[in-house]
């Protein structure tokens, strides 16, 4: 009896699922199970689900490697530094450390801190503190991640929430002063997307092995 296209597709998907599944016996188990399913439509859905399960397991294994953890740690450090940047620039400007302000200004859009003076003048004192708090929470999340202690994800997303609140406030200051700190929307959105992605990876990393029981 010839096989239907659905059955062939299911078998091809299942071969792929078995190949990517990091644990060979489970890959074989899924593959053998397919042959016990008579309905081609169900078999195709089964195989598709197995591919998802295979990639999920592969990702779990990758996330537990030292290089994945190191990459995420570096990213969280960068996110923390990003939170400290604006408070440091405002501090340097307000305390007349203009050399430092100039140095930091070179790393802003327009390469000159003086463009941002109206924004810095209009920034309330609590806003830099909010950003500093976000940066500290990022570093606390990193510490907990590296020590494998609970609470890293909560701290990370608390920092993320503070960052978003700060961004909303900064946006209103930009509107009132007419100075756009980061004109490139892609750069702005990219930072937030990167932050959210790092949070999701951290969450996924902490889920490994905890889905059912201690």
């Amino acid at each position: 009896m010839s096989e239907t296209p659905r059955r062939r597709a299911a078998q091809a998907l299942m071969r792929h699922a078995a190949r990517i599944m990091p644990r060979g016996d489970w890959g074989k188990a899924m593959q053998n199970e397919l042959q016990a399913i008579d309905d081609d439509h169900v078999a195709l859905r089964w195989a598709f689900g197995c591919v998802i399960a295979g990639y999920g397991e592969r990702m779990n294994v990758m996330l537990q490697t030292w290089y994945a953890r190191s990459a995420l740690a570096c990213l969280i450090v960068l996110l923390a530094l990003r939170e400290f940047f604006a408070p440091l620039l405002i501090f340097a400007y307000r305390t007349q450390h203009l050399g430092l302000a100039h140095f930091l200004g070179l790393r802003t859009a327009g390469d000159d801190y003086r463009r941002l003076i109206p924004v810095m003048d209009a920034t309330p004192a609590w806003l830099p503190l909010l950003w500093v708090a976000a940066g500290v929470f990022f570093l606390m999340a990193l510490w907990r991640m590296l020590r494998r202690v609970d609470g890293a994800v909560a701290l990370f997303f608390l920092a993320f929430a503070l960052d978003l609140a700060g961004a909303v406030m900064a946006k209103s200051i930009e509107s009132s002063t007419g100075v756009i700190v980061t004109p490139n929307l892609m750069v702005r959105a990219g930072g937030e997307i990167l932050m959210l992605s790092a949070g999701l990876v951290l969450w996924r990393m902490t889920q490994k092995g905890t889905a059912a029981a201690s």
Partner: peptide, 26 residues
């Protein structure tokens, strides 16, 4: 069997196998 578990629980294979793996690991 895995397929029987899928029918009995209504879980799709993409959900079922990760849960089985966790339970087995633990």
């Amino acid at each position: 069997h895995g397929y029987a578990l899928m029918k009995l629980t209504g879980l799709q294979s993409g959900t079922l196998y990760p849960v089985l793996l966790r339970l087995s690991d633990q």
